[in-house]
């Protein structure tokens, strides 16, 4: 018995140690980026004191203006488009009979499993066959393309949990087919739509590989701009404004997600409360 206890204790200790290691390996680079954004040195070879000037430059200086504007506008537009399309497609896929639904989901998951580099090259090739000029529109299409599967994957489980008669109840009470989707289905899968949209946004804003292959020479987002700067001049060639930008986007994402999650939880909790009061 004593030996068993010892073994369990050891297993637990191992779990704790490995978890600490995991968080170290994930967070050390993040902390370093944070420090670099606060470091009073353009080259960043060593710590030269605290400053906020890179943050000020981010807003006052034009140095990274174009890539930042591009990144944010692509992220917002592709999130909106892929969320709308993904929601419609998910509802359609869910309505299919099982065999076809599974087949559609298998196809849906191709871009999820496929390595980014393969997806990027596939898109680049189709764009050149269709003789699209690489730039804003091709990057937007590419981002919509890789976001839709994630939106669908987030929505399908919510649809599965719905009572299949719910939509018909809407029709029965006087909705047209489209009205019933809007008034009955959408409100009941809204959490799935929201998490899908958040996922699409976070992936678009940080994407490098797919943008790299579909943006051409002129159009750049922050990632491809950084890559070009590194390739052009080698190490330490870009301004610490990039660290400041990344830190702000990073914190913004955390704030949005925390906000959305606490709101969701509060909703659930008020629900539970009223349940408690049921006689």
């Amino acid at each position: 018995m004593k030996r068993r206890k010892q073994r369990i204790l050891m297993a637990k200790a191992m779990g704790v140690i490995l978890t600490v290691m995991t968080f170290l390996i994930l967070y050390v680079p993040i902390l370093l980026i944070l420090m670099l954004s606060l470091n009073d040195s353009a080259r960043g070879y060593q710590w030269e004191g605290f400053t906020l000037k890179w943050y000020a430059m981010l807003f006052l200086d034009d140095i990274m203006k174009d890539p930042i504007v591009n990144t944010i506008s692509i992220a917002i537009l592709s999130t909106i488009i892929s969320t709308i399309l993904g929601t419609i497609f998910a509802i359609g896929i869910h309505a299919l009979e099982k065999k076809r639904r599974v087949r559609m989901m298998v196809m849906n998951n191709v871009p999820v499993v496929n390595p980014d580099i393969v997806t990027g090259i596939s898109l680049m090739i189709i764009f050149s066959i269709l003789s699209f000029t690489l730039g804003f529109s091709t990057v937007l299409i590419a981002h919509v393309f890789f976001s839709i599967p994630y939106v669908i994957l987030n929505i399908i489980p919510k649809l599965k949990r719905l009572d299949p008669n719910l939509y018909e109840a809407g029709l029965d009470l006087g909705c047209s087919r489209i009205e019933a989707v809007w008034r009955v289905i959408i409100p009941n899968i809204s959490t799935g739509i929201l998490t899908g949209a958040l996922m699409a946004f976070t992936m678009s804003i940080d994407d490098f590989v797919i943008t790299y292959f579909t943006s051409g020479n002129e159009y750049m987002n922050v990632s491809t701009w950084l890559y070009a700067a590194l390739a052009r001049e080698g190490r330490n060639s870009f301004t610490p404004v990039a660290y400041a930008y990344n830190t702000i986007i990073f914190l913004l994402t955390i704030i949005i997600i925390v906000f959305v999650n606490t709101r969701k939880e509060r909703k659930v909790r008020t629900h539970e409360k009223s349940t408690c009061f049921t006689p």
Binding site: D163, N165, L166, E168, A169, G170, L171, D172, L173, G174, C175, S176, V184, P187, N188
Partner: peptide, 16 residues
Amino acid sequence: PNQREINTCFQKYALF
């Protein structure tokens, strides 16, 4: 269905 003067009470209710 929305053009028929018929309403349905569904199995498991299908309340919104």
